[in-house]
């Protein structure tokens, strides 16, 4: 099992009891050794492209992409996902399966891809890899194949 797979007892008790709350922004990245051997390079994406209110939905098969995009947009009015600026030039977002907010940052990888994640080499297992991005929509999936298998590919549609 992965070293980073973990839970604090109190947090678990709160989660099971349905008492989960969003905690204070995390200031530090993960302590586990990264699984990536990529080196970091500049990325053209900026955090301003991510900041804002988004409708989010996920899919697994390409045939579902269009209707999932429409579904994501429809949730802007009901339950948008809000990304704000972090204190260290990152953005405040959630990691997989974790209701706490963390500061994540964009990282260009030596493979030419752009990643979003903790202070770790680009392509770390906890990162998201950004598949496409514009001011109005971005598409990502988790690097970890197990997490990706569970959640599929995420579409973020900016709320107007």
């Amino acid at each position: 099992m992965k070293a980073g797979f973990a839970v604090l007892g109190l947090s678990l008790a709160l989660a099971v009891a349905g008492c989960a709350t969003v905690g204070e922004p995390e200031q530090e990245g993960p302590a586990a050794a990264s699984t990536s051997n990529l080196t970091e390079r500049p990325t053209e994406l900026t955090r301003e492209m991510l900041i804002g209110r988004w409708g989010i939905a996920s899919f697994r098969e390409e045939k579902d992409r269009a209707r999932v995009t429409a579904q994501a947009r429809s949730f802007c009015a009901r339950q948008p996902y809000v990304i704000t600026a972090g204190p260290r030039n990152g953005v405040m977002m959630h990691a997989a399966d974790d209701a706490k907010l963390y500061e994540l940052r964009l990282k260009g990888g030596s493979d030419g891809k752009t990643y979003l994640g903790f202070e770790a080499p680009p392509g770390d297992w906890q990162d998201r890899v950004i598949l496409s991005a514009s001011n109005d929509q971005w598409v990502m999936r988790f690097v970890d194949p197990e997490i990706h298998n569970r959640y599929g590919t995420f579409i973020y549609v900016r709320c107007k």
Partner: peptide, 17 residues
């Protein structure tokens, strides 16, 4: 375990639930 960890420190903690 992932499903259990609705609001846990999956990303940062170290002890399996």
């Amino acid at each position: 375990l992932a499903g259990l960890a609705a609001s846990t420190a999956f990303a940062q903690g170290r002890t399996p639930p």
